[in-house]
């Protein structure tokens, strides 16, 4: 067998990975605070690919819900889950049955002094993340950033975990928080569509290449040996 076909199989597997990434981005087109993944290759048609999370700002849209907050700057909200501290950009919060600010998974959103309890009727969240209930300051939303954001791992449920060192996590001072707004997904449908077509055609060429190799092999095996 000609060794070329193994390279090609590698290539088709990479294209497959790229397609799966595109499909996941497309599925999360309307997921709040979603950040798309981008697959790139070190060498054409080699399995040495890397998948980067693109942390560019997603569009911010008005919802009118006072517990919706959008981060219009870098950084992540810090949340306390059953598995430890996690980070998210999804600012669609709610109150749990005890009146604590939580995500839709029920995990507490952390302020500078731990979980934030809201007891009152009017909640206002300032541009710097200051949470006020009925005009009284309660706490400030904890917004953190990372020295090496590539070490953030997506966990699903709009959460990230940080796999780096604790001392690489710093509080963002210059935050812009918008109450009544949500950050939409940063997936661009045109871009994903083009990537999908690209992937599809690359996959198709791999098939054609495998078929040509097969034809060549066929010639070697069946025609060369024939005595005219």
């Amino acid at each position: 067998m000609i060794s070329g076909s193994y390279n090609l199989i590698d290539g088709s597997l990479t294209q497959q990975l790229k397609f799966e990434t595109v499909a996941n981005n497309m599925a999360n087109m309307n997921t709040n605070g979603f950040k798309k993944n981008i697959i790139s290759f070190n060498e054409a048609l080699k399995m040495n690919s890397i998948s980067k999370i693109d942390f560019t700002q997603g569009p911010v849209r008005y919802t009118g819900n006072e517990l919706d907050v959008a981060l219009d700057s870098k950084g992540f909200f810090k949340i306390q889950t059953a598995n430890g501290i996690r980070y998210t950009r999804d600012g669609a919060f709610k109150l749990d049955e005890t009146g604590t600010l939580a995500t839709w998974n029920g995990d507490s959103v952390l302020g500078q002094n731990g979980p934030i309890t809201i007891d009152g009727s009017k909640v206002s969240i300032g541009g710097d993340g200051q949470v006020q209930v009925d005009g009284e300051s309660v706490d400030r939303l904890m917004v953190v950033d990372f020295e090496s954001p590539q070490l953030l791992k997506k966990e699903g449920g709009s959460c990230y975990s940080y796999t780096g060192e604790e001392n690489e996590i710093s509080t963002v001072e210059d935050v812009r928080v918008q109450q009544n707004y949500l950050e939409s997904s940063n997936v661009n449908s045109t871009e994903e569509m083009i990537k999908m077509i690209e992937t599809y055609r690359a996959f198709e060429s791999v098939q054609k290449a495998i078929q040509s190799i097969d034809k060549v092999t066929d010639k070697i095996v069946n025609d060369y040996g024939l005595v005219p």
């Binding site: 599925a27 309307n30 699903g156």
Partner: peptide
Amino acid sequence: FQDMMYQTISEAGATTETGGQIPVGIQVG
């Protein structure tokens, strides 16, 4: 909506065969 779980194909920060570190991992959602 939220994104579902991710399958980690290669972990960021893991050591490669040549002793280097994988700078960016691969996760498929």
